[in-house]
Structures are given as C-alpha cells and as structure tokens.
Computed example of a mutant assay.
Amino acid sequence: MNHWLVKSEPVKYSWEKFNKDGRTFWDGVRNYQARNNLREMKEGDLVLFYHSNEGKAVVGIAKVVREFYQDPTTEDPNWVVVDLSPVQTLKTPVTLETIKADGQLKNVSLVRQGRLSVMPLKVEEFDRILELGS
C-alpha cells in the first residue's frame, strides 16, 4: 500500500462536501508530476486530505476506490483522475505550521514542493501526521 496527500481549496471542494458526497473523482490536476502521482495510485491506498490556501491543514483520511482513468472534464488524454472516498476526519487538523515545525516531517513533499497538489508520502510521514492529528 502507498500513501498520498491531495490538496484542495475548501472554497472549491471541502472535506465537509467530500463527506456529504461520499465519493468523488479527483479532477483538475494539470501538473505532470501530480498527474504521474495519480497514475501511481492503487485501489486501497490511503490519502491525506489537505485544505490549501484557507486553513492550510490536513483534515481527514480518504482512500483510493478506483484507479486512474481519463479525466471526464477534458478531452485531452494527458489528464487522468482517480476516485476517492472519505474514511475518517482527524480529531485535530494538522496545520502546515505544525508539519514544518516537526523534525520528523522536515522532508515531506508538502514542505519541499508546496505547489504540488498530489504527492506521495512515506509511511512514516503518513503515520506521524495521523499521530499529530489524534
């Protein structure tokens, strides 16, 4: 199993809306590195949901429920989506400030490549963020 982090602006698609929907396809990715990460996601992989811009915090856990396929919002075959389903809301959101201050997370992609919207996490990084959010 692999571990990931996806970012969404709460005004565009919030954790609360995701929970109400129960499932969504993760669209709008127009960065090749993020797209390649979507292609690497496998059914059952766990994903941290991060509110970007407003809040700047990991707020929940999702899982991949369908592997990549053509992004239905574009006819361009370069772009793909995966289907995600919510699993659990973190008791305490884990802010970017907290992540940056934690020595165990100093090399996490969220800190090193802040503009990347879909990124892999090492299992240790994933577990540490969950620990901080419990």
Results as ranks from 00 to 15, higher is better:
residue 3 H to Q: 15
residue 5 L to D: 03
residue 6 V to P: 10
residue 6 V to L: 09
residue 7 K to R: 14
residue 7 K to L: 07
residue 8 S to Q: 13
residue 8 S to T: 09
residue 8 S to E: 04
residue 8 S to N: 10
residue 11 V to Y: 12
residue 12 K to T: 07
residue 12 K to F: 11
residue 13 Y to I: 15
residue 14 S to V: 00
residue 17 K to G: 12
residue 18 F to Q: 03
residue 19 N to T: 00
residue 19 N to I: 04
residue 19 N to R: 14
residue 21 D to M: 10
residue 23 R to D: 05
residue 24 T to W: 02
residue 25 F to S: 15
residue 27 D to R: 09
residue 27 D to W: 01
residue 29 V to C: 11
residue 29 V to G: 11
residue 29 V to M: 09
residue 30 R to M: 05
residue 31 N to G: 03
residue 31 N to Q: 04
residue 34 A to L: 07
residue 34 A to D: 08
residue 34 A to M: 01
residue 35 R to M: 03
residue 35 R to I: 12
residue 36 N to I: 05
residue 36 N to S: 10
residue 37 N to I: 04
residue 37 N to M: 12
residue 38 L to C: 12
residue 39 R to K: 12
residue 40 E to N: 14
residue 40 E to Y: 06
residue 41 M to V: 02
residue 42 K to A: 08
residue 42 K to I: 00
residue 44 G to F: 11
residue 44 G to H: 10
residue 44 G to M: 06
residue 45 D to F: 03
residue 45 D to M: 08
residue 45 D to I: 08
residue 47 V to E: 08
residue 48 L to K: 02
residue 48 L to E: 05
residue 49 F to A: 10
residue 52 S to F: 07
residue 54 E to M: 10
residue 55 G to C: 05
residue 55 G to S: 11
residue 55 G to L: 07
residue 56 K to T: 07
residue 57 A to T: 07
residue 57 A to C: 09
residue 58 V to F: 00
residue 58 V to R: 06
residue 59 V to S: 13
residue 59 V to M: 01
residue 61 I to Q: 09
residue 61 I to T: 14
residue 63 K to P: 05
residue 64 V to A: 12
residue 66 R to D: 03
residue 67 E to K: 06
residue 67 E to C: 01
residue 67 E to M: 10
residue 68 F to G: 13
residue 68 F to L: 05
residue 70 Q to H: 15
residue 73 T to Y: 01
residue 74 T to M: 12
residue 75 E to Y: 01
residue 78 N to M: 10
residue 78 N to P: 01
residue 79 W to S: 02
residue 80 V to H: 02
residue 82 V to P: 04
residue 84 L to A: 14
residue 85 S to F: 03
residue 87 V to R: 14
residue 88 Q to M: 11
residue 89 T to I: 13
residue 91 K to Q: 09
residue 93 P to W: 05
residue 94 V to C: 10
